[in-house]
């Protein structure tokens, strides 16, 4: 897994929030997204140490480009846990969401210290990636895991929450050229290579200046 440099954005100039006041967004959606954009920067559920670890995990699972305000992934996860949201199920041996996170972060730090003599947030990116890959494949044995399987924690809790938090954010929506919220107005043009005027144009689908112009003016 290598970081590519700074590739040209796929949907240059597209910001889904441009559509916020238009007919694609209703009041309840504006309210929900506004709350999300105003998520507190400081943790309310995690301790500062835990929060730092979550942030370093998120930076490896959903690495973000420079040059734009980052999606506050750790803060979004903290908010969800603070609120007490639940998936509604957990594998045998895994505690509920909050305890699972606490226990998993502890175990991750224990693994980092055992392997590299330092906490997870303090080791280099490559080593962090290595640890996360081991967790994903279940190749971890610290007693700090208790009855929880590292694989389960990676797939069903940690990486899941990170990915869901990132892709709950309008910045991520813009990045992948998704149309975003759509009510009352939905879509008209559904077939191959069809785009409504209120959808993002892809780089290469026309003259670069024109694509940018279209994307700046989706409404």
């Amino acid at each position: 897994m290598h970081d590519r440099g700074r590739p040209e954005p796929r949907y240059p100039g597209y910001d889904v929030l441009t559509k916020r006041q238009g007919p694609s967004w209703n009041e309840q959606t504006r309210r929900v997204v506004s709350q999300r954009l105003a998520v507190p920067a400081e943790p309310r559920f995690f301790t500062p140490d835990e929060f730092r670890t979550v942030a370093s995990v998120a930076a490896r699972i959903v690495p973000q480009p420079d040059g734009r305000p980052p999606v506050p992934v750790a803060a979004l996860i903290d908010e969800k846990l603070f609120r007490g949201a639940s998936d509604g199920y957990r594998p045998e041996g895994m505690p509920r969401e909050r305890e699972a996170w606490r226990q998993g972060l502890q175990a991750l730090d224990a693994e980092a210290k055992a392997a590299y003599g330092a906490a997870f947030h303090a080791i280099g990116a490559a080593r962090q990636d290595g640890l996360l890959a081991r967790m994903q494949s279940g190749d971890m044995t610290s007693p700090a895991w208790g009855r929880m399987s590292p694989q389960d924690f990676f797939k069903r809790r940690m990486a899941r929450d990170v990915v869901l938090a990132y892709y709950a954010h309008p910045t991520a929506w813009s990045e992948i050229g998704w149309g975003g919220p759509a009510s009352p107005r939905g879509y008209v043009r559904l077939d191959f290579d069809e785009r409504d005027p209120w959808e993002a144009a892809e780089a290469g689908s026309g003259d670069a200046v024109e694509v940018r112009r279209i994307n700046r003016h989706v409404g």
């Binding site: 897994m1 290598h2 590519r4 959903v62 690495p63 996360l132 992948i176 998704w178 892809e202």
Partner: peptide
């Protein structure tokens, strides 16, 4: 996950 995930998500459409 990581860069692979981010670049693959670019193909969403």
């Amino acid at each position: 996950w990581g860069a692979r995930l981010m670049s693959d998500m670019q193909n969403y459409n």
